[in-house]
Amino acid sequence: MVWLKRAWALLLLLAVFCAGSPAWAFEGIDYTLTNQNEADFSSRDLADTSFAGASGRHANFSGSDLHGAIFTQASFPEADFSDANLTNVLMDKVDFSGADFSNALLAGAIASGSSFIGATVTNADFSDALIDRLDQRSLCKEASGSNPITGVDTRSSLGC
């Protein structure tokens, strides 16, 4: 129950902090605290959508536009984010273990406290993303390629 209180407190804080800022205003669908295990969100427009506190093991987000979405305090192990646009996404304290971020755009994402253990990041762009040092080191061990859209080298975008 403590995580639920923290999730709501964080959402309230975000609402207060972002009030009057159209770039961060919540406009998408609200999947907060829902079970999205095995869900198929492939090739969908999910910009500014909230998945705060949600679970989505094996969820498919391949090719989706998720820019500005909220994934805070959630669990998406082994989810497919390949070819997805995750720019400026808030993804703090999220379990992304074993997730596939191949060809994904994660520029400007905030991923503090998240876990990317075993995640695939081939051709991903993490430019200006905030990632914990431990995850950054782990991702650098397997990172390779360049993003097909931005041309940015994955290792360089991670600061390897």
Rank of each mutant, 00 (worst) to 15 (best):
N103I: 03
D40N: 13
A111F: 03
G56C: 02
A119P: 07
K141I: 03
A107N: 09
R57I: 01
I131T: 10
V89E: 04
G145D: 01
C140K: 00
L105E: 07
T72R: 05
T120Q: 06
G159M: 03
D92V: 14
H67F: 07
A19F: 08
S157K: 02
T32F: 05
A79V: 05
F116N: 04
I70T: 11
D95Y: 00
A9I: 02
F41G: 00
R137G: 13
S144W: 04
F17Q: 12
T122L: 12
V94L: 09
E78F: 13
I70Q: 10
L14F: 08
D40H: 01
I117M: 11
L46G: 04
L90C: 10
I117F: 13
G53T: 02
S112A: 12
D125L: 00
A107K: 05
K93G: 08
G53Q: 01
A107P: 05
H58P: 05
A129N: 03
A25G: 06
T87N: 14
L134C: 10
A9Q: 08
L33D: 11
G118A: 09
G53P: 05
V2K: 10
A99F: 04
F41W: 03
A19C: 11
G98H: 06
F41Q: 01
A74Q: 06
I149K: 07
E38T: 10
G159P: 06
G108V: 03
F126H: 00
I149F: 06
S112K: 10
G68Y: 02
H67G: 03
T122R: 11
T122P: 01
S43V: 11
R57N: 06
C18G: 15
S64W: 07
V94N: 05
W3R: 09
D128V: 09
A111E: 05
I70N: 12
Q136H: 07
E27T: 12
R155N: 06
S156A: 15
A84R: 03
L11I: 06
S102H: 07
N35P: 01
A15W: 04
G56Y: 00
T34D: 08
D30W: 05
F26R: 11
F126I: 00
T87Q: 15
E78S: 12
A74S: 15
L90R: 10
A104L: 00
N85P: 08
D83M: 10
D83P: 07
P148N: 02
I29D: 11
L33G: 09
D65G: 01
Q136T: 14
T87V: 14
R6T: 13
K93M: 12
L46H: 01
I110L: 12
L90Q: 10
A15Y: 05
I117C: 08
V121T: 03
N60L: 04
E142S: 15
S114E: 10
N60I: 06
T32P: 09
R57C: 02
A119E: 03
H58L: 14
L66V: 04
N35G: 01
